[in-house]
Design a protein around this nucleic acid. Structure first.
Length: 474
DNA sequence: TGAAATGTTGGGGCG
DNA sequence: ACGCCCCAACATTTC
């Protein structure tokens, strides 16, 4: 007879610390740890190129932590489970819950199929501080505004559970018929990923180190600093969180435990509040499964979006002629990440100044971001468009030049990604096209050659967007 | 987690 | 000395 095993199905929990389902599996008996790269059920939400690269390295790290005992598969997860239970004596399946609509549908189906064969499923919360269905208004409808959602909904609910301890007694089985990580073919054939990954350390240890670094070096200047893309005040934990290399519970409690003698309460609460935004995105997606596709405010269905491939491409490549926008888009391209403040600005620019459908931005971010996350990405783009649940009012249009002067006053961030502007006096870096001819000449810059002319006029495109909006709402 | 337009105020130059 | 104008600087409103 084949070996008796308890399967732990790793999904968005690529870690051994604070992993309740994995802990349960290892307490039940011999564990068959598996990962399935399921691009079948994911459909159009299959991982983007950058996410696959991250996944490759994260799985490599996880597999090492498991002494090489991780079994990998590619394809439809239900079919793979059918096949596994035919070859192993599967006594139970453990997983931490996922919350994306396609995953919920798939997992529900698998749970039913396993139930029919009397194989119990043990599911846990490993990814969210509060279950989406638990945080609702007193009339049990979902919150529509962040502040009450967080202050009343989350903070007055039970506090997030404490992290569970890591097991040291697990023993494993491996499926010899499984694929190697390389056989999942997650890395691109043209190896554009090699420089990108140097900015990060994928995997559980990298995540733990990132948290430590942030608690010591970033948290004490978080409020104020978190909006300055040139500073190191943000945690940069988002990709680690997305893949579950670290749990939000550990982050939450680690931040709360920082002595207020060392770091003011203001910073700790401000940081935890940002974890709350992540929770809010998942809450919105849970109650609005169509969030990734459909405007929550139908008024935006009638918006006359522009279509201009050249402008989209200029935006994607960071060649718009507006330095803060271009620096942000190049940060994304080069590092698989973009500072949050800059995400809002480039988003506003695409949707309001260029008047492109937010879907273009959502798709590009999905493909390029290491932290591409269906809930955060969809909620973020709907927010910036104004079409979302707790949306920025449409008329709140960021002026990228003012944002640049305000949040990157010394142009540290811009120059990191646009070194061609180095010789310009700082006051002209935010809008080179407004600099006098002799200033440009002295800096060795010819607009249109060394750096592009702006692809839109900020003032007129702003006015046009407002006109369209008022025509829609009337 | 905006920006621009419009309104108000008050100091100083000046006849 | 006084009133008037100008215009920063700040506040409020509007989109």
């Amino acid at each position: 007879m084949s070996a008796s095993v308890y399967i732990h199905w790793f999904r968005q929990d690529l870690r051994l610390n604070d992993n309740p389902a994995f802990l349960q599996a290892s307490e039940l008996g011999c564990v068959l740890p598996i990962y399935i790269f399921d691009d079948i059920n994911a459909g159009e939400y299959a991982m983007g190129s950058a996410s696959r690269v991250w996944l490759h390295h994260s799985l490599t790290s996880l597999s090492e932590s498991l002494g090489g005992m991780l079994s990998c598969y590619r394809g439809d997860a239900s079919a793979i489970f059918e096949e596994l239970i035919s070859r192993f004596d599967v006594r139970g399946v453990c997983w931490n819950r996922c919350y994306e609509p396609w995953r919920i549908a798939r997992d529900t189906g698998i749970k039913k199929m396993l139930g029919e064969k009397d194989i119990p499923v043990y599911s846990y919360n490993g990814s969210l501080l509060w279950e989406p269905w638990d945080i609702v208004k007193s009339d049990s409808s979902p919150y529509r505004v962040f502040t009450p959602y967080y202050n009343k909904g989350c903070l007055q609910y039970e506090p997030p559970r404490m992290p569970v301890t890591k097991t040291d007694k697990a023993h494993f089985e491996k499926d010899n018929a499984s694929k190697t990580i390389d056989e999942l073919s997650l890395l691109p054939t043209i190896r554009w990923d090699k420089k990108m990954v140097l900015h990060w350390k994928m995997g559980e240890l990298g995540a733990q180190n990132r948290l430590k670094t942030f608690l010591h070096e970033g948290l004490n200047s978080y409020i104020g600093g978190r909006d300055m893309p040139g500073k190191c005040s943000v945690s940069r934990l988002s990709p680690h969180l997305h893949f579950g290399e670290i749990s939000p519970h550990q982050i939450w409690h680690a931040a709360q435990a920082v002595s207020t003698g060392t770091v003011e309460k203001l910073h700790i609460e401000g940081f935890c509040r940002e974890l709350g935004w992540r929770e809010f995105s998942y809450n919105q997606l849970y109650f609005n499964p169509e969030l990734p596709k459909k405007n929550i405010r139908p008024m935006f269905d009638d918006f006359p979006w522009e279509s201009n491939d050249a402008q989209i491409e200029a935006w994607q490549r960071g060649e718009t002629g507006i330095p803060l926008i271009d620096a942000g888009m190049r940060e994304l391209w080069q590092t698989g990440y973009m500072h949050n403040r800059v995400r809002m600005v480039v988003g506003s620019f695409l949707v309001k100044n260029l008047r492109m459908h937010w879907h273009h931005g959502e798709r590009w971010f999905w493909d390029c971001l290491f932290d591409a996350d269906l809930a955060n990405n969809s909620a973020g783009w709907q927010w910036v468009t104004g079409s979302g649940i707790d949306a920025a009012p449409y008329f709140r249009i960021f002026n990228p030049v003012l944002q640049s002067k305000k949040f990157d006053p010394n142009a540290d961030y811009i120059l990191k990604y646009l070194p061609v502007l180095t010789r310009l006096p700082v006051e002209h870096i935010h809008a080179p096209y407004e600099a006098p001819q002799d200033v440009l000449r002295n800096a060795g810059i010819v607009l249109g050659e060394d750096y592009p002319h702006p692809i839109v006029d900020l003032a007129t495109s702003r006015k046009r967007a407002l006109e369209i909006y008022s025509s829609l709402s009337s």
